[in-house]
């Protein structure tokens, strides 16, 4: 679609991760490399427990790799930065803060005036479709709405790269389907400052529906089996033959 040479916004270079548990080393991630271009939506998929979350946390800078490095906009990631935002599988909402206050927590590290903070908060609450629920507490809203809060909190930071760790896995199938298109809109449209997104998932259909490129990982230790480009026009139809071909391909790669 784009004819220009794509610019990588993120580069993962030979990343390794070794955990030490009870004095024994065990390798979770082995020599993983890939890159994410501007405008690209990338999926990371692999068997349960293989190290997907660990990889995403390394990209964000929450944990340091044991080897290799991550470059975000050409600079090495040494700690979390304002340019990236994380969305958690378990939402990570603070139960005693309202929807509004939870979203505002995302803006804590940014040096912007109070007034602009308020504006951003309400802008992104509206964007994810939660206007009217600003004063609600997490326990008073449904699971799907909780993840919308998580998204609004991540977006309010106006990051260029959105990192999502199984954002839809804790939700029921119907709610998750409802949120898929919101995720595509976040990453692919120009309504938000987000330039690219990475989603971790173990739902193959979800990945084929959402992303431009799927990084398929093997089980322990995690290695890249293959990068699968998904060349399907959007909005994608989950019922077509070509859609199923991608699904089958990825499933056969993993198993």
């Amino acid at each position: 679609m784009e004819s220009k040479k794509p610019i990588p916004i993120l580069e993962v270079r030979n990343v390794e991760k070794v955990f030490i548990v009870e004095n024994k080393e065990f390798q979770v991630i082995q020599n993983i490399s890939f890159s994410v271009n501007e405008g690209e939506f990338v999926g990371i998929i692999g068997p349960s427990g293989c190290g997907k979350s660990t990889l995403l946390r390394i990209i964000d800078g929450m944990i340091r790799p044991s080897g290799g490095k991550v470059l975000f906009k050409g600079k090495e990631v040494l700690q979390p930065s304002d340019g990236m935002s994380f969305v958690f599988q378990t939402f990570a909402l603070v139960p005693w803060l309202t929807v509004e206050q939870n979203v505002e927590l995302g803006l804590d590290s940014l040096n912007i005036p109070e007034k602009e903070k308020k504006e951003r908060v309400s802008k992104y609450i509206k964007f994810v479709g939660l206007d009217g629920f600003e004063k609600f507490f997490p326990r008073e809203i449904s699971g799907g709405m909780k993840q919308r809060v998580g998204l609004a909190r991540a977006l309010a930071r106006e990051p260029s790269l959105l990192l999502m760790d199984e954002p839809l896995s804790s939700l029921d199938e119907l709610t998750a389907r409802g949120l898929r298109d919101l995720l595509i809109r976040l990453v692919k449209s120009t309504e938000t400052p987000v330039e690219a997104g990475i989603i971790v998932s173990h739902n193959v259909e979800e990945v084929v529906y959402l992303v431009d490129k799927a990084i398929v990982l093997s089980g322990r230790p995690a290695k890249v089996i293959e990068e699968v480009k998904i060349d399907l026009p959007r909005p994608r139809n989950t019922k077509t033959r070509s859609f199923f071909k991608y699904v089958d391909r990825i499933i056969s790669l993993i198993s």
């Binding site: 929450m62 979390p80 994380f86 958690f88 378990t90 990570a92 603070v94 995302g106 804590d108 590290s109």
Partner: peptide, 23 residues
Amino acid sequence: IPEDIEEMLKSFKAKTSTKILRI
């Protein structure tokens, strides 16, 4: 306090004062 909240604070670089006051 769950691990994910602590990770969230780290990822979003929450200030120490915010951590103490709000969490």
